[in-house]
Design a protein around this nucleic acid. Structure first.
Lengths: 221, 221
DNA sequence: TCCGTAAGTGAGTGTTCACTCACTCATATA
DNA sequence: TATATGAGTGAGTGAACACTCACTTACGGA
Protein backbone atom coordinates (compact mmCIF):
# COMPACT_ATOMS: atom_id res chain seq x y z
CA UNK A 1 0.00 0.00 0.00
CA UNK A 2 2.67 2.38 1.01
CA UNK A 3 4.27 2.41 -2.40
CA UNK A 4 0.95 3.31 -3.95
CA UNK A 5 0.97 6.76 -2.35
CA UNK A 6 3.53 8.11 -4.72
CA UNK A 7 1.85 6.64 -7.74
CA UNK A 8 -1.51 8.12 -6.88
CA UNK A 9 0.02 11.49 -6.37
CA UNK A 10 1.73 11.29 -9.70
CA UNK A 11 -1.37 10.08 -11.50
CA UNK A 12 -3.45 12.71 -9.85
CA UNK A 13 -1.11 15.29 -11.21
CA UNK A 14 -1.15 14.19 -14.83
CA UNK A 15 2.40 13.03 -14.84
CA UNK A 16 3.25 9.79 -16.58
CA UNK A 17 2.30 6.68 -14.68
CA UNK A 18 5.33 5.23 -12.99
CA UNK A 19 5.72 1.46 -13.33
CA UNK A 20 5.16 -0.47 -10.14
CA UNK A 21 8.67 -1.91 -10.12
CA UNK A 22 10.21 1.48 -10.70
CA UNK A 23 8.35 2.76 -7.66
CA UNK A 24 9.50 -0.12 -5.50
CA UNK A 25 13.07 0.55 -6.60
CA UNK A 26 12.80 4.24 -5.69
CA UNK A 27 11.29 3.45 -2.30
CA UNK A 28 14.06 0.93 -1.67
CA UNK A 29 16.70 3.41 -2.76
CA UNK A 30 15.37 6.02 -0.33
CA UNK A 31 15.55 3.48 2.47
CA UNK A 32 19.04 2.18 1.71
CA UNK A 33 20.55 5.56 0.82
CA UNK A 34 19.17 7.09 4.01
CA UNK A 35 20.74 4.33 6.09
CA UNK A 36 24.13 3.99 4.38
CA UNK A 37 24.57 7.10 2.27
CA UNK A 38 24.77 7.05 -1.53
CA UNK A 39 28.36 5.85 -1.89
CA UNK A 40 27.96 3.38 0.95
CA UNK A 41 24.91 1.74 -0.64
CA UNK A 42 25.12 -1.27 -2.95
CA UNK A 43 22.82 -1.72 -5.92
CA UNK A 44 22.56 -5.37 -4.86
CA UNK A 45 21.07 -4.31 -1.53
CA UNK A 46 18.62 -1.95 -3.17
CA UNK A 47 17.53 -4.75 -5.49
CA UNK A 48 17.00 -7.08 -2.54
CA UNK A 49 15.05 -4.44 -0.63
CA UNK A 50 12.90 -3.74 -3.69
CA UNK A 51 12.44 -7.47 -4.35
CA UNK A 52 13.63 -7.21 -7.94
CA UNK A 53 16.68 -8.54 -9.76
CA UNK A 54 19.70 -6.29 -9.84
CA UNK A 55 19.38 -6.02 -13.62
CA UNK A 56 15.92 -4.54 -13.26
CA UNK A 57 17.34 -1.46 -11.58
CA UNK A 58 19.39 -0.78 -14.68
CA UNK A 59 16.39 -1.24 -16.95
CA UNK A 60 14.85 1.81 -15.28
CA UNK A 61 17.93 3.80 -14.34
CA UNK A 62 20.96 4.03 -16.58
CA UNK A 63 23.38 4.34 -13.66
CA UNK A 64 23.37 4.27 -9.88
CA UNK A 65 23.70 8.04 -9.92
CA UNK A 66 20.54 8.35 -12.01
CA UNK A 67 18.81 6.57 -9.17
CA UNK A 68 19.86 9.38 -6.85
CA UNK A 69 18.67 12.07 -9.24
CA UNK A 70 15.44 10.11 -9.59
CA UNK A 71 14.72 10.87 -5.95
CA UNK A 72 14.20 14.50 -6.80
CA UNK A 73 10.85 13.74 -8.39
CA UNK A 74 9.46 11.94 -5.34
CA UNK A 75 10.91 14.77 -3.29
CA UNK A 76 8.97 17.45 -5.05
CA UNK A 77 5.78 15.40 -5.21
CA UNK A 78 5.69 13.84 -1.78
CA UNK A 79 7.16 16.75 0.10
CA UNK A 80 7.23 20.01 -1.75
CA UNK A 81 3.74 20.10 -3.17
CA UNK A 82 1.91 19.44 0.11
CA UNK A 83 4.23 21.94 1.74
CA UNK A 84 3.24 24.66 -0.65
CA UNK A 85 -0.40 23.85 -1.08
CA UNK A 86 -1.46 23.22 2.48
CA UNK A 87 0.44 26.27 3.70
CA UNK A 88 -1.19 28.57 1.23
CA UNK A 89 -4.63 27.47 2.28
CA UNK A 90 -4.18 27.35 5.99
CA UNK A 91 -2.18 30.45 6.54
CA UNK A 92 -4.02 32.80 4.26
CA UNK A 93 -7.48 31.66 5.26
CA UNK A 94 -7.17 31.43 9.02
CA UNK A 95 -4.74 34.26 9.44
CA UNK A 96 -7.32 36.92 10.19
CA UNK A 97 -9.49 34.88 12.53
CA UNK A 98 -6.97 33.45 14.98
CA UNK A 99 -4.22 34.67 17.25
CA UNK A 100 -0.76 34.77 15.68
CA UNK A 101 0.42 32.32 18.33
CA UNK A 102 -2.13 29.75 17.29
CA UNK A 103 -1.49 30.06 13.60
CA UNK A 104 2.25 29.78 14.02
CA UNK A 105 1.93 26.81 16.32
CA UNK A 106 -0.28 25.02 13.85
CA UNK A 107 2.02 25.92 10.97
CA UNK A 108 5.12 24.69 12.78
CA UNK A 109 3.46 21.47 13.93
CA UNK A 110 2.22 20.83 10.44
CA UNK A 111 5.64 21.35 8.85
CA UNK A 112 7.20 19.26 11.59
CA UNK A 113 5.02 16.24 10.91
CA UNK A 114 5.49 16.60 7.16
CA UNK A 115 9.26 16.68 7.56
CA UNK A 116 9.27 13.77 10.01
CA UNK A 117 7.11 11.68 7.70
CA UNK A 118 9.51 12.24 4.80
CA UNK A 119 12.69 12.22 6.84
CA UNK A 120 14.63 9.50 4.93
CA UNK A 121 13.93 11.17 1.60
CA UNK A 122 14.76 14.67 2.80
CA UNK A 123 17.83 13.52 4.67
CA UNK A 124 19.20 11.66 1.66
CA UNK A 125 18.65 14.46 -0.81
CA UNK A 126 20.04 17.15 1.49
CA UNK A 127 23.10 15.19 2.61
CA UNK A 128 23.96 14.05 -0.91
CA UNK A 129 23.41 17.54 -2.26
CA UNK A 130 26.51 18.49 -0.29
CA UNK A 131 28.63 16.29 -2.54
CA UNK A 132 26.66 16.32 -5.81
CA UNK A 133 26.05 19.80 -7.15
CA UNK A 134 23.48 18.57 -9.68
CA UNK A 135 21.15 17.84 -6.78
CA UNK A 136 21.52 21.25 -5.21
CA UNK A 137 20.48 23.15 -8.31
CA UNK A 138 16.92 21.85 -8.56
CA UNK A 139 16.53 22.57 -4.86
CA UNK A 140 17.72 26.12 -5.38
CA UNK A 141 15.35 26.54 -8.28
CA UNK A 142 12.30 24.58 -7.21
CA UNK A 143 12.23 24.25 -3.45
CA UNK A 144 13.79 27.22 -1.72
CA UNK A 145 12.09 30.00 -3.71
CA UNK A 146 8.65 28.44 -3.21
CA UNK A 147 9.11 28.02 0.49
CA UNK A 148 10.50 31.52 0.86
CA UNK A 149 7.74 33.11 -1.17
CA UNK A 150 5.22 31.67 1.22
CA UNK A 151 7.08 32.54 4.38
CA UNK A 152 8.05 36.00 3.20
CA UNK A 153 4.53 36.90 2.20
CA UNK A 154 3.23 35.71 5.55
CA UNK A 155 5.84 37.77 7.36
CA UNK A 156 5.22 40.82 5.18
CA UNK A 157 1.52 40.85 5.86
CA UNK A 158 2.19 40.75 9.58
CA UNK A 159 4.70 43.53 9.31
CA UNK A 160 2.17 45.63 7.45
CA UNK A 161 -0.62 45.21 9.96
CA UNK A 162 1.78 46.02 12.77
CA UNK A 163 1.98 42.58 14.38
CA UNK A 164 5.68 42.20 13.69
CA UNK A 165 8.55 44.58 14.19
CA UNK A 166 10.22 46.08 11.19
CA UNK A 167 13.06 43.59 10.78
CA UNK A 168 14.21 42.56 7.34
CA UNK A 169 11.58 40.12 6.06
CA UNK A 170 14.07 37.48 4.99
CA UNK A 171 15.73 37.67 8.38
CA UNK A 172 12.46 36.80 10.07
CA UNK A 173 11.79 33.96 7.63
CA UNK A 174 15.27 32.62 8.22
CA UNK A 175 14.74 32.79 11.96
CA UNK A 176 11.60 30.69 11.68
CA UNK A 177 13.41 28.13 9.56
CA UNK A 178 16.41 28.08 11.90
CA UNK A 179 14.27 27.47 14.95
CA UNK A 180 12.35 24.61 13.37
CA UNK A 181 15.42 23.03 11.74
CA UNK A 182 17.42 23.38 14.92
CA UNK A 183 14.73 21.67 16.93
CA UNK A 184 14.36 18.80 14.47
CA UNK A 185 18.09 18.21 14.04
CA UNK A 186 19.11 18.57 17.67
CA UNK A 187 16.23 16.59 19.13
CA UNK A 188 16.61 13.73 16.65
CA UNK A 189 20.42 13.51 16.71
CA UNK A 190 20.82 14.12 20.44
CA UNK A 191 17.46 13.17 21.94
CA UNK A 192 18.93 12.67 25.41
CA UNK A 193 19.96 16.32 25.52
CA UNK A 194 17.31 18.14 23.56
CA UNK A 195 14.03 16.25 23.65
CA UNK A 196 12.49 17.95 26.64
CA UNK A 197 8.77 17.47 25.99
CA UNK A 198 6.30 16.24 23.42
CA UNK A 199 6.45 18.08 20.13
CA UNK A 200 3.40 20.20 20.87
CA UNK A 201 4.83 21.71 24.06
CA UNK A 202 8.17 22.26 22.38
CA UNK A 203 6.66 24.04 19.43
CA UNK A 204 4.63 26.25 21.75
CA UNK A 205 7.81 27.32 23.51
CA UNK A 206 9.61 27.90 20.24
CA UNK A 207 6.80 30.10 18.93
CA UNK A 208 6.72 31.98 22.21
CA UNK A 209 10.44 32.74 22.11
CA UNK A 210 10.20 33.62 18.45
CA UNK A 211 7.50 36.19 19.17
CA UNK A 212 8.68 37.53 22.51
CA UNK A 213 12.37 36.81 22.86
CA UNK A 214 14.06 35.72 26.06
CA UNK A 215 14.68 39.13 27.54
CA UNK A 216 12.82 40.05 30.71
CA UNK A 217 11.24 43.39 29.80
CA UNK A 218 10.64 44.38 33.42
CA UNK A 219 14.42 44.69 33.68
CA UNK A 220 14.74 47.30 30.97
CA UNK A 221 15.63 50.89 31.90
CA UNK B 1 53.15 25.70 8.21
CA UNK B 2 49.49 24.92 8.42
CA UNK B 3 50.07 21.34 9.43
CA UNK B 4 52.20 22.51 12.31
CA UNK B 5 49.22 24.05 14.11
CA UNK B 6 47.83 20.74 15.19
CA UNK B 7 51.17 19.41 16.29
CA UNK B 8 51.90 22.39 18.45
CA UNK B 9 48.53 22.13 20.06
CA UNK B 10 49.10 18.50 20.79
CA UNK B 11 52.61 19.04 22.11
CA UNK B 12 51.48 21.92 24.22
CA UNK B 13 48.94 19.66 25.81
CA UNK B 14 51.31 16.88 26.82
CA UNK B 15 49.92 14.37 24.36
CA UNK B 16 52.29 12.21 22.40
CA UNK B 17 54.04 13.93 19.53
CA UNK B 18 52.35 13.06 16.29
CA UNK B 19 54.69 12.16 13.45
CA UNK B 20 54.87 14.72 10.69
CA UNK B 21 53.65 12.28 8.04
CA UNK B 22 50.75 11.19 10.19
CA UNK B 23 49.71 14.81 10.50
CA UNK B 24 49.91 15.39 6.78
CA UNK B 25 47.78 12.31 6.23
CA UNK B 26 45.15 13.53 8.68
CA UNK B 27 45.05 16.98 7.10
CA UNK B 28 44.72 15.41 3.67
CA UNK B 29 41.97 13.11 4.90
CA UNK B 30 40.01 16.06 6.28
CA UNK B 31 40.29 17.79 2.92
CA UNK B 32 39.33 14.81 0.77
CA UNK B 33 36.60 13.50 3.06
CA UNK B 34 35.02 16.94 3.27
CA UNK B 35 34.92 17.20 -0.51
CA UNK B 36 33.84 13.68 -1.44
CA UNK B 37 32.49 12.12 1.73
CA UNK B 38 34.08 9.14 3.46
CA UNK B 39 32.82 6.40 1.14
CA UNK B 40 33.41 8.53 -1.92
CA UNK B 41 37.06 9.17 -1.03
CA UNK B 42 39.91 7.01 -2.28
CA UNK B 43 42.94 6.23 -0.16
CA UNK B 44 45.01 6.84 -3.29
CA UNK B 45 43.74 10.41 -3.45
CA UNK B 46 44.44 11.02 0.22
CA UNK B 47 47.98 9.71 -0.28
CA UNK B 48 48.50 12.03 -3.24
CA UNK B 49 47.13 15.01 -1.32
CA UNK B 50 49.37 14.18 1.65
CA UNK B 51 52.37 13.63 -0.64
CA UNK B 52 53.08 10.18 0.76
CA UNK B 53 52.87 6.68 -0.70
CA UNK B 54 49.60 4.87 -0.28
CA UNK B 55 51.31 2.28 1.89
CA UNK B 56 52.31 4.96 4.39
CA UNK B 57 48.69 5.60 5.24
CA UNK B 58 48.35 2.00 6.34
CA UNK B 59 51.51 2.20 8.43
CA UNK B 60 49.74 4.76 10.60
CA UNK B 61 46.11 3.67 10.28
CA UNK B 62 45.11 0.03 10.19
CA UNK B 63 42.14 0.67 7.92
CA UNK B 64 40.49 3.51 6.06
CA UNK B 65 37.85 3.62 8.76
CA UNK B 66 40.53 4.16 11.42
CA UNK B 67 41.47 7.24 9.47
CA UNK B 68 37.97 8.57 9.97
CA UNK B 69 38.02 7.80 13.70
CA UNK B 70 41.43 9.46 13.83
CA UNK B 71 39.76 12.74 12.94
CA UNK B 72 38.07 12.81 16.31
CA UNK B 73 41.33 13.70 18.02
CA UNK B 74 42.01 16.72 15.81
CA UNK B 75 38.37 17.61 16.27
CA UNK B 76 38.58 17.82 20.00
CA UNK B 77 41.94 19.56 19.98
CA UNK B 78 41.47 22.05 17.17
CA UNK B 79 37.84 22.79 17.80
CA UNK B 80 36.49 21.67 21.11
CA UNK B 81 39.23 22.85 23.44
CA UNK B 82 39.32 26.46 22.17
CA UNK B 83 35.54 26.43 22.19
CA UNK B 84 35.42 25.54 25.86
CA UNK B 85 38.40 27.53 27.08
CA UNK B 86 37.88 30.80 25.36
CA UNK B 87 34.20 30.80 26.23
CA UNK B 88 34.81 30.19 29.88
CA UNK B 89 37.19 33.11 30.10
CA UNK B 90 35.35 35.62 28.00
CA UNK B 91 31.84 35.04 29.14
CA UNK B 92 32.44 34.74 32.83
CA UNK B 93 34.86 37.63 33.07
CA UNK B 94 33.14 40.24 30.97
CA UNK B 95 29.63 39.23 31.81
CA UNK B 96 29.15 41.72 34.61
CA UNK B 97 30.74 44.71 32.93
CA UNK B 98 29.03 44.76 29.55
CA UNK B 99 25.52 44.79 28.14
CA UNK B 100 24.03 41.38 27.42
CA UNK B 101 23.70 42.38 23.77
CA UNK B 102 27.41 43.02 23.46
CA UNK B 103 28.47 39.84 25.21
CA UNK B 104 26.17 37.70 23.12
CA UNK B 105 27.26 39.37 19.92
CA UNK B 106 30.89 38.77 20.75
CA UNK B 107 30.18 35.20 21.77
CA UNK B 108 28.27 34.42 18.60
CA UNK B 109 30.86 36.07 16.36
CA UNK B 110 33.61 34.19 18.10
CA UNK B 111 31.89 30.81 17.74
CA UNK B 112 31.05 31.67 14.14
CA UNK B 113 34.65 32.28 13.15
CA UNK B 114 35.82 29.20 15.02
CA UNK B 115 33.29 27.05 13.22
CA UNK B 116 34.05 28.60 9.85
CA UNK B 117 37.77 28.06 10.33
CA UNK B 118 37.25 24.36 11.07
CA UNK B 119 34.40 23.82 8.66
CA UNK B 120 35.84 20.86 6.67
CA UNK B 121 36.68 18.97 9.85
CA UNK B 122 33.35 19.67 11.54
CA UNK B 123 31.39 18.95 8.41
CA UNK B 124 33.10 15.61 7.86
CA UNK B 125 32.71 14.40 11.41
CA UNK B 126 29.09 15.47 11.69
CA UNK B 127 27.99 14.13 8.32
CA UNK B 128 29.76 10.81 8.76
CA UNK B 129 28.44 10.50 12.31
CA UNK B 130 25.03 10.05 10.69
CA UNK B 131 26.16 6.77 9.17
CA UNK B 132 28.80 5.60 11.66
CA UNK B 133 27.50 5.34 15.21
CA UNK B 134 31.02 4.97 16.64
CA UNK B 135 31.64 8.60 15.72
CA UNK B 136 28.50 9.89 17.35
CA UNK B 137 29.28 8.41 20.75
CA UNK B 138 32.43 10.42 21.47
CA UNK B 139 30.54 13.53 20.40
CA UNK B 140 27.72 12.71 22.79
CA UNK B 141 30.21 12.10 25.57
CA UNK B 142 32.88 14.69 24.94
CA UNK B 143 31.46 17.54 22.90
CA UNK B 144 27.80 18.12 23.61
CA UNK B 145 27.93 17.99 27.42
CA UNK B 146 30.83 20.44 27.54
CA UNK B 147 29.16 22.90 25.24
CA UNK B 148 25.88 22.61 27.08
CA UNK B 149 27.44 23.02 30.49
CA UNK B 150 28.85 26.33 29.37
CA UNK B 151 25.73 27.58 27.68
CA UNK B 152 23.41 26.38 30.42
CA UNK B 153 25.43 28.01 33.16
CA UNK B 154 25.50 31.26 31.23
CA UNK B 155 21.76 31.12 30.75
CA UNK B 156 21.14 30.17 34.35
CA UNK B 157 23.08 33.09 35.71
CA UNK B 158 21.07 35.45 33.55
CA UNK B 159 17.84 33.89 34.65
CA UNK B 160 18.87 34.32 38.27
CA UNK B 161 19.74 37.97 37.99
CA UNK B 162 16.48 38.63 36.17
CA UNK B 163 17.86 39.36 32.71
CA UNK B 164 16.14 36.41 31.10
CA UNK B 165 12.61 35.15 31.38
CA UNK B 166 11.95 31.94 33.22
CA UNK B 167 12.00 29.55 30.26
CA UNK B 168 13.53 26.12 30.63
CA UNK B 169 17.29 26.63 30.57
CA UNK B 170 17.97 23.95 28.00
CA UNK B 171 15.30 25.44 25.76
CA UNK B 172 17.12 28.76 25.76
CA UNK B 173 20.46 27.09 25.09
CA UNK B 174 18.94 25.14 22.24
CA UNK B 175 17.46 28.31 20.81
CA UNK B 176 20.89 29.95 20.75
CA UNK B 177 22.40 26.93 19.03
CA UNK B 178 19.55 26.74 16.53
CA UNK B 179 19.88 30.38 15.57
CA UNK B 180 23.63 30.16 15.03
CA UNK B 181 23.50 26.79 13.25
CA UNK B 182 20.63 27.92 11.07
CA UNK B 183 22.48 31.02 10.04
CA UNK B 184 25.67 29.12 9.21
CA UNK B 185 23.97 26.33 7.31
CA UNK B 186 21.48 28.44 5.37
CA UNK B 187 23.87 31.23 4.47
CA UNK B 188 26.61 28.85 3.34
CA UNK B 189 24.41 26.38 1.43
CA UNK B 190 22.08 28.99 -0.08
CA UNK B 191 24.09 32.23 -0.01
CA UNK B 192 21.95 33.82 -2.73
CA UNK B 193 18.91 33.58 -0.47
CA UNK B 194 20.23 33.99 3.02
CA UNK B 195 23.42 36.00 3.03
CA UNK B 196 21.93 39.42 3.56
CA UNK B 197 24.82 41.31 5.16
CA UNK B 198 28.28 40.85 6.58
CA UNK B 199 28.46 38.46 9.49
CA UNK B 200 28.62 41.19 12.09
CA UNK B 201 25.34 42.82 11.06
CA UNK B 202 23.68 39.43 10.79
CA UNK B 203 24.79 38.37 14.23
CA UNK B 204 23.54 41.64 15.69
CA UNK B 205 20.11 41.00 14.23
CA UNK B 206 20.10 37.42 15.43
CA UNK B 207 20.98 38.49 18.96
CA UNK B 208 18.32 41.18 18.85
CA UNK B 209 15.61 38.76 17.80
CA UNK B 210 16.82 36.24 20.34
CA UNK B 211 16.49 38.78 23.13
CA UNK B 212 13.39 40.67 22.02
CA UNK B 213 11.42 38.46 19.65
CA UNK B 214 9.65 39.68 16.55
CA UNK B 215 6.38 40.70 18.12
CA UNK B 216 5.52 44.39 18.13
CA UNK B 217 4.69 45.07 21.76
CA UNK B 218 2.78 48.26 21.00
CA UNK B 219 0.16 46.01 19.46
CA UNK B 220 -0.50 44.01 22.58
CA UNK B 221 -3.75 44.44 24.49
C1' DT C 1 82.84 1.85 8.20
C1' DC C 2 79.50 -1.41 9.22
C1' DC C 3 75.36 -2.92 11.09
C1' DG C 4 70.58 -2.67 13.04
C1' DT C 5 66.37 -0.51 13.04
C1' DA C 6 62.58 1.74 11.59
C1' DA C 7 60.16 4.81 8.29
C1' DG C 8 58.57 4.87 3.90
C1' DT C 9 57.52 2.86 -0.66
C1' DG C 10 54.61 1.17 -4.58
C1' DA C 11 53.75 -2.83 -7.45
C1' DG C 12 50.93 -6.53 -6.63
C1' DT C 13 46.55 -9.04 -4.94
C1' DG C 14 42.05 -10.61 -3.80
C1' DT C 15 37.65 -8.81 -3.44
C1' DT C 16 33.79 -6.16 -4.30
C1' DC C 17 31.12 -3.60 -7.17
C1' DA C 18 28.36 -1.31 -10.97
C1' DC C 19 26.82 -2.59 -14.99
C1' DT C 20 25.86 -5.95 -19.29
C1' DC C 21 23.58 -9.16 -22.07
C1' DA C 22 21.77 -13.39 -23.60
C1' DC C 23 18.07 -15.42 -21.95
C1' DT C 24 13.07 -16.54 -19.88
C1' DC C 25 8.40 -16.13 -19.57
C1' DA C 26 3.96 -13.93 -19.01
C1' DT C 27 0.77 -11.57 -21.56
C1' DA C 28 -1.46 -9.49 -25.70
C1' DT C 29 -2.96 -10.02 -30.28
C1' DA C 30 -4.47 -12.47 -34.42
C1' DT D 1 -3.44 -22.12 -30.66
C1' DA D 2 0.66 -19.84 -32.56
C1' DT D 3 3.51 -15.88 -32.48
C1' DA D 4 5.40 -11.46 -31.07
C1' DT D 5 6.76 -8.32 -27.55
C1' DG D 6 9.07 -6.43 -23.85
C1' DA D 7 9.49 -6.57 -18.79
C1' DG D 8 12.31 -8.91 -15.83
C1' DT D 9 16.35 -11.88 -14.71
C1' DG D 10 20.96 -13.09 -12.72
C1' DA D 11 25.41 -15.15 -13.93
C1' DG D 12 29.19 -13.05 -15.77
C1' DT D 13 32.79 -9.21 -16.53
C1' DG D 14 36.13 -5.68 -16.24
C1' DA D 15 37.51 -2.01 -13.41
C1' DA D 16 38.48 -0.02 -9.19
C1' DC D 17 39.52 -0.41 -4.69
C1' DA D 18 41.54 -1.22 0.14
C1' DC D 19 45.13 -3.31 1.84
C1' DT D 20 49.84 -6.22 1.86
C1' DC D 21 54.57 -7.14 1.77
C1' DA D 22 59.11 -7.53 0.11
C1' DC D 23 62.01 -4.11 -0.60
C1' DT D 24 64.79 0.55 -0.26
C1' DT D 25 66.58 4.26 2.09
C1' DA D 26 68.10 7.09 5.97
C1' DC D 27 70.26 7.36 10.09
C1' DG D 28 72.24 6.57 14.84
C1' DG D 29 75.45 3.98 17.56
C1' DA D 30 79.56 0.97 18.01
Amino acid sequence: MKEKDLNELIEGSNEEQIAEKKLKILEAAIKVFSEKGFEGSRTSEIAKEAEVAEGTIFKYFKTKKDLLSGLLIPLSIKFLRPLIMKSAEDILKKDKENATEEILKELFLDRLSLIKKNMPLIKTVLVEAIYHDELLEPIKEQVVPQVLQLLDSYVDSHKQNGDFNDYNTRLISRTMMSLLMGYIVLSSVFPEFFSLNEDEKEIESIVDIFLNGVKNKGEQI
